[in-house]
Design a binder for these strands. Sequence first.
RNA 1: GCCCCCGUAGCUCAGUGGAUAGAGCGAGGCCGUCCUAAGGCCUGCGUCGGCGGUUCGAGUCCGUCCGGGGGCGCCA
Length: 575
Amino acid sequence: MTDPQTVLTERVQQALARAFGPEHADADPLIRPSQFADFQANVALSLGKRLRRAPREVAEAIKAELSDFPGTVEVSGPGFLNITLEDSWIESEARRMLADPRLGVGTITPSQTVVIDYSAPNAAKEMHVGHLRTTIVGDSLARLHEHLGNTVIRQNHLGDWGTPFGMLIEHLLDIGEEAAVAQLEAGQGTEFYQAARAKFDADEEFRQRARSRVTTLQGGDPATMRLWHVFMSATIHYFNKVYDLLGVTLTDADIAGESMYNPMLEQTCDDLEASGAAVVSEGALCVFPPGFTGSDDKPLPLIIRKSDGGYGYATTDMAAIRYRVHDLKADRILYVVGSEQTLHFRMVFAAARLAGWLPDAVSAEHVQIGMMLGKDGRRFRTRSGETAKLTDLLHEAVERAAAVIADRGYDEATRDEIAKAVGMGAVKYADLSVSHDNDYVLDFDRMLALTGNTGPYMQYATARIRSIFRKAGLEPSAATSPIVLGEPEERALALHALDFGALVEQVTVESEPHRLCAYLFELASLFSGFYERCHVLRPGVPPETRDSRLALCALTMSVLETGLGLLGVPVPERM
RNA sequence: GCCCCCGUAGCUCAGUGGAUAGAGCGAGGCCGUCCUAAGGCCUGCGUCGGCGGUUCGAGUCCGUCCGGGGGCGCCA
């Protein structure tokens, strides 16, 4: 790792150990970027208190120990060290980073097996805009973990089982398999569901058929299972079309829907009951994980088997967590699921710990996805009349991007390709660039914006860089000249690039892709300033300056491309 | 009733206990013989919901109140 903060932290720790004794080598000097210098080290709290010395005295002592530091160190304020790095240090580190295929991103050792549960659309309903964030955030987390060398097991926990499938199968029979498949593959899942629902509500005969169909489905009747497969494969075909357009890495191999756990549910309940983790209460089999109480301070149950003998989603989640730990060998399980399920997952995790199915060494984390709200600030309902079809949003995104480049003389295929990349980049970045756990108001214009802090802004920076290399007749990989920092824009750009590796690692550990977005936006902004004021190929630019700037462009592009790749935002060659 | 989350600029949002709280959008002005103007530069924009506490230092931690949302035994 060559990022300045890590290097500076180590240097200050060493200085501290020399000045005050080796027992202080593990202190955290809190190195942060500063408006007054490149970085500020705070020695007031972590060191001054611990040493029972005046912060200024500590700061002075550390400064004295850093006399050989490649840069300037100044004491300022009550316990602050302002640190400015020497250009030559940044230059050599930037060049080292440029030559490093991993751009300073380390690998996690030992590598972990990370199970990531995300997307999980309900097959009984159409994918709407609300499914986007879990899909995009989960996919980015999967890419990040893979980049750090972890083994990622994607789990698309499809809603593909349960009572609605009785009426869906009967409706499929009513309208004919062929017509049903055509409708479902075309993305008309909502209409299909609504038609079935309407008959279910209005027609007693249909209702009876639907109920008995649920029974035969759960009994594993071959003819019914075949119909279920027909329905599911058509629905999955549609999901895959959406995933393809979005560039999401989920495949059929990642599907692990509720139906998959169905055969395990009985054993799940039996084992929980036999171990004493679950007890029968009011006719239902329940786990009462400690620390959860509802109204009247009564212990809150996680209902594993309903009083009618049926299974609910808690049963499935208990079976799933055991499967993920025991069979998939997970070290870390990420549930990228809506925040309204927080209590549910806390209880599932606690129950799994209680049952001994989730060892302390394995972490189970709920990566909360905030709720999508309507314009009224309340939970979004498709009934409210607002447009919410995911495919509508995605097609609108491509159309708006196409409109911008309509008159740029690209051939049709190129134009379509760029429009798709830019449109998806805009939509995905919009969902990735804010904290995943905050509720958010659905706003097409925000998600489709093409200027400002958007995906296309970063894409545009890479397109400009590519354009420079095209004009220079070079491949970016050929730009390996020494980087010489003359202008402040060059220095700021190189310095920020050096942070990439440490940031990616932190973002992955903390499951916070929005911080990678913020980093990349800052980098692209710095590049734009550089681009305006530091010409590369213009006449009059000295050859060594030109070569240095080409190397800086190459470094910037590598970071942007890699970073956008980790977000799942496509990088078009030109725009 | 109990538990959890949220409240930061007109809007959408960042903000790891550190100095003068930042971006984007929107508004106004400027930059065009010049590597892609999806860009750059400038300007205005704040009781960080209120009060109290801890701290050398609080948007950040604690308490309390107000406002909004979510959840709380057989939906997922």
